[in-house]
Every structure is written in structure tokens, then in C-alpha cells.
């Protein structure tokens, strides 16, 4: 099966097989008005099987760093005029706002529905996020 290469946009490659839909939802790619291709179970010499997401858009305004929450081994390639111009390293964001939900039933966010769910990166090495309010550890997706 062939999917055309894109001229301008982003290719998220080396996604662990089966994880692309989670990334699609996390980045809310369903809100984009450009072509988005999800390729699952593509052959990979290194990984056996992998997922790939191709986003065909010149002006993309999304925070790609949060991909690291789902799959820190995914790679992000920026394409311009059909050429790879940048391999973006995923850096975990210092703060996540309304990306993860605090699951602690004792947290104030469990009763105040209008409060943003905010998590801060408290340990870069282990990628640990804690709720701003109750300091409960975030449940990682990967």
C-alpha cells in the first residue's frame, strides 16, 4: 500500500504499532482542515511494525512535544518542499494544561469542573508529571 509523500508538513514516524490513534486524539488532529494520514502496522526493519502519521499542512500550529507522553521513541520530521528540513527532538513540556486528567478523587479538580487540569514536569529523567493542585503523579499513557 502506498501513501504519497507530503510536500509541506510533518511526519511522525517510528510510533509504536497501535499508538497512532492515541496521538491523533491527543493532538486533536481531527480538528485540522488538511489531509492527515494514519498508517498502522507499517513494516519497519528496526521495530518490526510501526505506525506513521503524515500531516499535509504548511502552517501547523500544534504542540508536538506532548507526543513524548505517549511514545517517547517516536520521531518528528518537518518537511518543506518535499525535503526533510528538521528532525525534531521531543522534549517533554514543562506544563500540560488540559491534556491529562487528574485521577485523584481527593483532588479539588474532582469536584470543580471548570478548573483546568494542570500537570507540571517534576522529574525530567523519569518524565514524571504531578498535578499542580494535589501533586498526584500523572498516569502515563505509554
Amino acid at each position: 500500500m502506498n501513501i504519497d509523500s507530503i510536500q509541506n508538513g510533518v511526519v511522525i514516524d517510528h510510533i509504536k504499532a497501535g499508538k497512532s490513534m492515541e496521538i491523533y486524539n491527543l493532538l486533536q488532529l481531527y480538528n485540522l482542515d488538511c489531509p492527515v494520514a494514519l498508517i498502522t502496522n507499517a513494516h519497519s526493519g528496526k521495530m518490526g511494525a510501526k505506525d506513521i502519521i503524515k500531516i499535509d499542512s504548511e502552517n501547523l500550529d500544534i504542540d508536538l512535544d506532548v507526543i513524548g507522553l505517549i511514545d517517547p521513541n517516536a520521531t518528528v520530521n518537518i518537511i518543506r518542499h518535499g525535503q526533510l528540513v528538521e528532525k525534531k527532538a521531543l522534549t517533554l513540556p514543562l506544563e500540560l494544561r488540559d491534556v491529562l486528567k487528574c485521577k485523584n478523587p481527593r483532588c479539588i479538580t474532582s469536584v470543580e469542573q471548570d478548573l483546568s487540569h494542570v500537570f507540571r514536569l517534576t522529574d525530567k529523567q523519569s518524565g514524571t508529571y504531578r498535578c499542580l493542585y494535589c501533586e498526584a503523579k500523572a498516569e502515563r499513557r505509554n
Binding site: 485523584n104 481527593r106 483532588c107 479539588i108 479538580t109 474532582s110 469536584v111 470543580e112 478548573l115 498535578c131 499542580l132 493542585y133 494535589c134 501533586e135 498526584a136
Partner: peptide
């Protein structure tokens, strides 16, 4: 004082 954690921060 509040029974929910983080309420005073809010």
C-alpha cells in the same frame, strides 16, 4: 481548610 487537596492553592 478544605477537604479537597489543592483547594487553598486555587
Amino acid at each position: 481548610r478544605h477537604p479537597k487537596e489543592g483547594a487553598p492553592l486555587v
